[in-house]
Design a binder for these strands. Structure first.
Lengths: 222, 222
DNA sequence: CGTTAAAATTAGTCTTAACTAAAAATAGCT
DNA sequence: AGCTATTTTTAGTTAAGACTAATTTTAACG
């Protein structure tokens, strides 16, 4: 196992690559709340450990070994998020911050027990896929809310887990994974207007961009 | 909250004082698997933080502030031991080592949730009292197995949690807290011979010393 | 194409908590 | 009491991972 700091960096680098964003010095610094200089130091260390490819002034990319290590951390993280929500009733806006701490102390044995207690789940409370133990992740060919045409009815698949205030707001509206909603209008400046449970509401573009959905026609409800 | 290292030292100093043993440099070094020099350094740091009184060449004693901090760590430790055993089915010989890691990442909120999920328990799986949130611990006016007269029937109250192999052995014999046994003979050199569930077995003195019991006459079974 | 702003890197420092090796203090034994 | 073995402490080092300040590289724009 790697140090806690290394695991944190790997988790965040993965989180960026997962969304096709570049893992740059300044982005990591903002996400981990450290200075840019600290990030550069760690990038060098990760590169020396063959966990990332560091292109100076460009950013890093996970190597196969780095991806494997990152997926282990992410698996721990998402399993714990779900466990806290299911077993201890922790609200979904708090599970991310707690899991960030717990993920570093989870032994393989405890991982197995939690996995079994949850019935071998496949997604976190926010709808993110839980990597398997051997390091594979489900594809996510989903679209963001802000790319959709008015009139469409869609089902929420996943929402970003990192903004507690936003999660509380979405929770109030009932915008959890598996919730269905209709797009009323969509405008890159004014945001997305949608109807959920008969209620209309507006989400800003930067919010709508982090909500992933699937067309209802594609997944007939059982 | 204090650093993980400080919490580990406080926990072990408390564990010694709880058994009326002196918290010396070498004892702590053995328990925490560090060198004596490291312990001396930490003793100075703890003394500077007013958590212990350090008498050079003699050892340390927890101050009121140190005791309070130690009891918080011990509360976390024992709550987690019980939670792992009850909720995840972890065998009682493994819960100590796992709890040693988990105790450092437990927020107050999670502590409350775990406490509630367990129904506000008062003892760990090994029978050790769980300190309350405000820092009080139940008295333990119990005797060790090796102090008893033959013929007595007693109930196990508590066993030491730190030797997994011993715990597995005791588990095989059914020697859990609340188990009843009869003293067959007791000898400081040969150890304690006892009968439990109709089976006779012998425990060495150093083992018997760490098993705490209460006379059955004192506690009529409901 | 050169100037400037932003981003990244370097150089050097700090803290925590370990370590080794050497010196000092205590305890045990005759 | 005095010698020896053990224990403890001191002194100095190391590693991780953060930091600041200064410098270099890249990107953007007139």
């Amino acid at each position: 196992m790697h140090t806690q700091a290394i695991e944190d960096y790997l988790r965040e680098i993965y989180a960026l690559q997962e969304r096709d964003e570049r893992a740059t010095t300044s982005t990591l610094a903002a996400r981990l709340d450290v200075t840019a200089a600290s990030v550069t130091n760690m990038f060098k260390k990760l590169a020396a450990l063959n966990l990332v490819l560091h292109e100076p002034y460009k950013g890093v990319t996970l190597t196969p070994a780095g991806l494997k290590a990152a997926l282990e951390v992410v698996r721990h993280h998402r399993l714990i998020e779900l466990y806290l929500a299911e077993a201890l009733g922790v609200p979904w806006d708090q599970v991310h911050d707690e899991a960030e701490k717990w993920e570093h102390v989870l032994s393989e044995d405890m991982e197995d027990r939690i996995d079994a207690a949850l019935g071998y789940p496949t997604t976190s409370p926010h709808g993110a896929p839980i990597p398997t133990r051997d390091g594979t992740v489900a594809d996510r060919p989903y679209r963001s809310l802000n790319e959709l045409e008015p009139g469409q009815t869609v089902e929420i698949i996943e929402v970003s887990d990192r903004d507690p205030a936003l999660l509380r707001y979405l929770g109030e509206l009932g915008l959890y994974p598996r919730a269905r909603l209709e797009i009323v209008s969509n405008n890159p400046y004014r945001g997305t207007v949608l109807r959920v449970n008969g209620v209309e509401c507006t989400l800003g573009c930067d919010v709508a961009r982090h909500i992933f959905v699937e067309s209802v026609s594609d997944i007939p409800r059982e």
